[in-house]
């Protein structure tokens, strides 16, 4: 599903240039929920941006469903991102001018209006609204369709962001500290819903976080330090979807890594 090979990335904001990714390779299978965990400045957000086609690596490649996304021109990469990748950000990033439902429907509408998309493949408005309603129901957002982002709580905003990321049924969901801006209860609620949805829909997802409590919801945890993956921890949830996150086991493993 997702194959990244030898990713290197440096930022030239100081001398010497700061190497953020030092030859990272990883593979994420179809329907797998992977967490990338590391301390601040370890390179995990940059890795997510590179995987999502937002930040071109200095070297290496990213293949999603067999397509090398950095071999695509900017326009084609935008289209690929729109059709195959969903993003969830730490700061929700809902468009303030749109209602909750319109925010969720945005990727489908963007897809519809693409010049490259044949009219016959465009999604009907009724289908879009049905998809929006379904997703909002699944994320427990019923009744908030007409509300603006400034009228709802942080947890609800982040669930709307997740719904938007999933609206176009992307091949890959990328989440950057999705609970970083939420209180503990809201964060747990958002994570459990995200994990449940991904499992139910066999959604491939990569999540980056510095929080072991969050990473524990994943099937597999990749630990990153100084731009390199230093460990890979199987959480054993893939074969047992009902299993609760084993925070203690993950914490013990991370302690060995002095993380």
């Amino acid at each position: 599903m997702l194959v990244a090979e030898s990713l290197r990335k440096s930022f030239h904001v100081s001398r010497p240039a700061r190497q953020v990714l030092r030859g990272i390779s990883l593979t994420v299978g179809h329907g797998e929920f992977v967490a990338v965990m590391g301390a601040s400045g370890s390179g995990k957000s940059t890795l997510l941006h590179v995987l999502g086609g937002l930040e071109r690596p200095d070297s290496g490649s990213v293949r999603i469903q067999g397509v090398d996304i950095y071999s695509l021109a900017d326009g084609a990469r935008s289209a690929f991102r729109r059709d195959h990748i969903g993003f969830v950000f730490q700061f929700f990033n809902l468009l303030p001018a749109l209602t909750a439902a319109e925010n969720v429907a945005l990727p489908l509408r963007l897809r519809n209006e693409s010049w490259l998309r044949p009219r016959s493949r465009r999604v009907a408005q009724s289908v879009i609204m049905e998809r929006v309603t379904t997703l909002m129901d699944q994320l427990n957002l019923r009744g908030l369709q007409g509300h603006g982002p400034d009228e709802i709580s942080g947890g609800e905003q982040q669930r709307i962001a997740i719904a938007r990321a999933l609206a176009a049924a992307p091949s890959l969901l990328l989440a950057d500290e999705p609970t970083g801006n939420l209180d503990w209860n809201s964060g747990q609620e958002v994570l459990s819903m995200l994990a449940r949805l991904c499992r139910a829909q066999a959604q491939t997802a990569v999540l980056v976080t510095h929080d072991a409590q969050v990473a524990a919801y994943a099937d597999r945890v990749l630990v990153i330090r100084d731009g390199e993956i230093i460990d890979e921890i199987e959480m054993g949830r893939r074969d047992d979807p009902g299993k609760r996150p084993d925070h203690a086991r993950l914490a013990a493993r991370l302690a060995k890594l002095e993380l």
Partner: peptide, 16 residues
Amino acid sequence: RRDIGLLRAAGASATQ
């Protein structure tokens, strides 16, 4: 600016 970033991240092309 952030709207632009978000739209681009959500798949909007530069042309859009």
